[in-house]
Design a protein around this nucleic acid. Structure first.
Lengths: 187, 187
DNA sequence: AGGGTATATAGGATTTGTCCTATATATGAC
DNA sequence: GTCATATATAGGACAAATCCTATATACCCT
């Protein structure tokens, strides 16, 4: 349950509401762990029932009360325990590769069309990640330390490197499709 | 619903049972699309209800009857429609990065320990993928064409490249942790 | 005047995937 | 002799995630 610990993690920086957490998620970890608004509220409720977070109500009439959540002692302990423990990597799920896997049923032209679309999507995603860089630095200076900023940047770097590798891969596939007769051997 | 189309895809090579499909999944697409046994059977049932597959029973007393599924006309049409259409990439979910994101709360020693474990896992995964190569070629020669073998190999290549990129990334992070004072800037 | 966005929470419904169990027998390993 | 593995299907229970809707008001744009 990574989301639970991501929420606890953000609360180590100080109390926050579900609404603010959602925005924080979107501007920092969305690129490797998207979180639905509805899921965040439910997670906060569950963490509350487990005693890992507590909240106080702040009246905002006529808007709904703000529920400002903060970490309890137990919550902080649980987070640090999780953070220091090794975890199995989550299984990979790349649906687009299923299409590639069965692409032999299509004509080269059709495959090229799809591959180029994929490449376009990857380039777009890379630009999005590059645009995230200043945003992340802004957040780091606001709520985190310089040390935090290093690790935040490193996760962004991961996204960039992976997407660039995927782009190189698909561009290479396109190249090989255009010049047939080559051995497709991996390794 | 990628699984549905993966199942339909495998059935284009000929009729099969849920049991055999599970084995086929494990030896070909498991590295980018793991499928639970239980899920495969339920998927076959659902595809049957939708009219995309049909099955005949083969008595095997005392073992349970084999349900040999084959594609219907509708099923083949649906698969080819899906195969030729562009699809949005599935969202990335890398739980391990959440740990990296909050790693600032740990000591350098603890982080190094975890990072080295991650690297070890990646090397292991790379070896597994390399070992899958001959298996995949064997399957390709048995049930697919040479053209299929190309695309099957390309998906494997994707896995190798992505895991190697991830390994380089983590090794670089380890290096930077050991020599402090360097700018962590991405890009 | 009407439509989109921001503020704030929350629940229903559905989908997708995992884990575990049940059934029934044969074979090979230790 | 017992224990794991292979053969074959199937369902209950649960977890995780997404989508949509409801509530209420204010502000800005056209």
């Amino acid at each position: 349950m990574s989301l639970d610990h991501a929420v606890l993690g953000f609360l180590t920086y100080g109390p926050s509401t579900g609404y603010d957490l959602k925005k924080l998620f979107d501007s920092t970890v969305r690129h490797f762990w998207p979180a639905d608004q509805s899921q965040i509220y439910r997670t906060l409720a569950r963490l509350g029932a487990q005693g890992f977070v507590a909240h106080e109500l702040i009246d905002q009439d006529p808007l709904p009360d703000r529920k400002v959540y903060s970490l309890t002692e137990d919550g902080r302990a649980e987070f640090l325990r999780w953070l220091a423990a090794p975890h199995a990597p989550d299984p990979v799920r790349e649906g687009s590769l299923i299409q590639v896997f069965f692409a032999g049923h299509l004509s080269d032209e059709e495959i090229l069309r799809l591959a180029k679309l994929q490449a376009k999507g990857l380039r777009q995603r890379i630009r999005t990640l590059e645009g995230l860089c200043p945003l992340l630095e802004e957040h780091a200076s606001q709520i985190g330390t310089r040390r935090d900023a290093f690790f935040w940047g490193v996760t962004l770097e991961h996204g960039l490197l992976m997407n660039r590798a995927a782009l190189r891969w698909i561009e290479n596939v396109i190249k090989r499709l255009k010049t047939p007769g080559q051995t497709p051997v991996a390794s």
